[in-house]
Amino acid sequence: MSTMSSTLSDKLDRIFRLQDLDIMLTEAQDPERKREEEEMGFRMGTIEKLTAARSRLLSQIDPRDLRLYERIAKRHKHAIVPVEDRTCLGCYMALPTSAVSLRTEPEQLLTCENCGRILYWLE
């Protein structure tokens, strides 16, 4: 399970972890979503372990990245969105060529100029 850093930069990796966790926390706290899962037979317990994991994760994230993420997450359900065919799948606007060329810059979080969401490439 140690192959992860070969596919994602550490910076992006921590933000990805945060978004995965936040999605799970949001769903676990959504009464309708919770009821749906329980009706399917799944147990939905308390979120304490997840919130503890979130605090630990936050301490590992660059404060600037965290501020960026939290600012976007306030406005959008998904702060991190994929790019497909040079289009941001958050707002469906085409990305300028300049943004596409920055894609090879692994130490920088790229955001959509139009909607501000953090971008990652699917292909």
Binding site: M1, M4, L8, M24, F42, R43, I47, K49
Partner: peptide, 18 residues
């Protein structure tokens, strides 16, 4: 894209309830 990330998400889901 990332096996470690996927495993982490699945283990966390188990922490919520099996």
């Amino acid at each position: 894209r990332d096996k470690a990330l996927l495993f982490e998400m699945l283990s966390r889901r188990e922490q919520l309830g099996s």
